[in-house]
Simulated assay, not measured.
Amino acid sequence: MRVFLARYGIHISKTTVHKYMNKTLNLAVIIMRKKPGYTAGKKHKIFNNLLCQNFTVDHKNKVWCTHFTYMRQPNGRFRYNCTIIDLFYRSAIASVNSDYINTDLAKETLKIALKQEKYPKNLILHSDQGQQFAFWEFVLFCKEQGITQSMSKAGCPYDNAAMERFFNTFKSCFYYRFTFESVEMLYKMTKEYINW
């Protein structure tokens, strides 16, 4: 930084630049929260991985990806979000928040996506091996809708990288940048961001 500024005849220290950036320009770095270490759980895999890390799709409503993320509420409790993205556009087509991370949340999100996209046929739904996606109620619902399920390898986030990237952007560009005064405000702003 000092070498760069010296080129233009400006001689100030890095500390001074830092002070001006913080106080005058109101610029600050966003520090990502450290993620807890991975703990291997029970494997629930009942479907093969049909994507094999190939996230290129030639038309819409061919492959959807889904996943959960968590957000801390103003009262300290967690709120969970389930989102489905279309790999063709890499954008969300359905997103639902809930106090519980369960099959009902996954199923409700899928119902909204299907209604939004007018019940597409020959659809692949890719997810991780979460028990929410392996539970018989969710599996049966997918079969009834003609949806083929695909699952990542256990403990391998690269197999669902499109969703991991979506939630990374969601948290760094939206969630970590705001303070939410109420659960209602968190819900409203999340919906606005996801549907933007």
Rank of each mutant, 00 (worst) to 15 (best):
I194P: 08
W136R: 14
L50A: 01
L50E: 00
L105S: 09
N26K: 09
N48Q: 10
H126T: 01
N122C: 03
P74K: 09
E164P: 08
S152Y: 01
Q131C: 06
A161Y: 09
M71D: 02
T169E: 07
I10S: 00
F135G: 05
K34C: 07
K34W: 05
C65I: 03
D159S: 14
N168C: 04
H11T: 06
Y20C: 04
K191F: 14
A92T: 06
M151L: 05
Y187V: 15
W136C: 10
C156I: 13
T179H: 15
A113H: 06
K118E: 11
K43A: 13
R77V: 09
Q132S: 10
I84K: 02
T15Y: 02
Y89N: 12
S91H: 11
Y100S: 13
S182I: 14
E144I: 11
M32L: 10
T16D: 00
D159K: 11
Q131I: 06
E144N: 15
N48Y: 02
A134F: 04
I194H: 13
A40Y: 02
N26Q: 08
Q129C: 13
I46M: 11
Y175V: 10
H11D: 04
M32S: 11
I93C: 12
T39P: 00
I112P: 01
Q131V: 05
V29R: 13
K23L: 02
E144Y: 13
T69L: 05
W196T: 13
Y80R: 11
D104L: 07
K107L: 10
V96C: 13
S172D: 12
T190Y: 08
S127M: 11
T148I: 08
T66L: 04
Q116E: 07
A113M: 07
Q73A: 12
G146F: 12
D159T: 12
N122L: 01
A154S: 15
Q145D: 12
K191D: 12
W196D: 11
K19M: 01
D104T: 08
A113E: 07
I30H: 08
Y100K: 15
I84H: 05
V183D: 15
T190A: 09
L25D: 07
A92N: 08
Y20G: 03
F138Y: 15
K191E: 14
Y119D: 12
T179M: 14
I147M: 12
W136P: 11
K171L: 09
M185F: 03
N75Y: 06
K143W: 10
Y176Q: 08
K19I: 01
L125N: 02
K115T: 09
A40P: 00
A6H: 04
M71T: 05
T148H: 03
F138S: 05
E108H: 05
Y8G: 11
L50D: 00
F141Y: 15
R90F: 08
S127P: 12
L125F: 10
A106K: 01
Q73M: 14
I194Q: 13
E108V: 03
K111Q: 14
T24W: 08
Y193R: 14
R177D: 09
T16K: 02
